[in-house]
Write a protein that binds this DNA or RNA. Sequence first.
DNA 1: GAATTTCTTCTACCACTGTAGGACTACAGC
DNA 2: GCTGTAGTCCTACAGTGGTAGAAGAAATTC
Lengths: 133, 133
Amino acid sequence: MTRLHRLGDLQLAILRVLWKQGEATAAEVQADLAGDRDLALSTISTMLKRLGEQGIVSHRAEGRQFIYRAKVGEQQVRATMVRDLVSRLFRGDSAALVSHLVEAGEVEPSELEDLREQVRRVRSPRGGRHENE
Amino acid sequence: MTRLHRLGDLQLAILRVLWKQGEATAAEVQADLAGDRDLALSTISTMLKRLGEQGIVSHRAEGRQFIYRAKVGEQQVRATMVRDLVSRLFRGDSAALVSHLVEAGEVEPSELEDLREQVRRVRSPRGGRHENE
DNA sequence: GAATTTCTTCTACCACTGTAGGACTACAGC
DNA sequence: GCTGTAGTCCTACAGTGGTAGAAGAAATTC
């Protein structure tokens, strides 16, 4: 599971299906992806197999077919990929990424306010203390 | 310049040098990178040539050697790559990325506050209006 | 002008993603 | 038991990044 930080489009698309469905066969993944991407079954199978070799998905046999399941969670992938991006583009400074988002007009300052509020509510359900300071 | 959104490590490292120095020869890039990455000159040259083919850098001849210059700015690359990540991992919702950063403990809520302040200062130097709404 | 130095370009190789056709295999039905 | 059928695996190819040796070209130096 070494290269979690640079997953391709198809790999992510497949993982998204597995996250959504819990587990799925290659054919089910193919069906779920159909529309956006009409891919041959062998394309999906090949990628699932490769993801398995990389430890990113696992599978169990059910009769003749394999049922796949993601071994990594969506949060984990997000965390890993975001951290990679931050280290590559913002010298590891996550706040610089947020700053960029605001300056680039991707988020509004007011949204920061909302988020701060929302997080505080989660962290301190009854007006308690923070873990630092 | 179609594939700005997925630049490799070396490509970014080279661009960083060009951004810092304005322009540079392959040997200068190599020298600047030495320490972190000790690469053959031909490695740098090859990548600079490829970046040129992709329209990401340009060069002019100065006597026998080429002097390279980035054709894309750091902000542009950041914007493109961040947008790509957001679309791949957060369904295009940049605020969700910020939310993720806070929940993952990568930025503190207090930092959001600072950023909001900082941005307000930049946008409205003397308490003026915003450009939207 | 020949030799040396200094660049660039060519060629090559490995790894990985995306993609898929075809081979192989095993179960299901007749 | 044979034959479809449904599923996996093998093989392959193009594209791209990372890496670099070797070849080719041009300027500098004797």
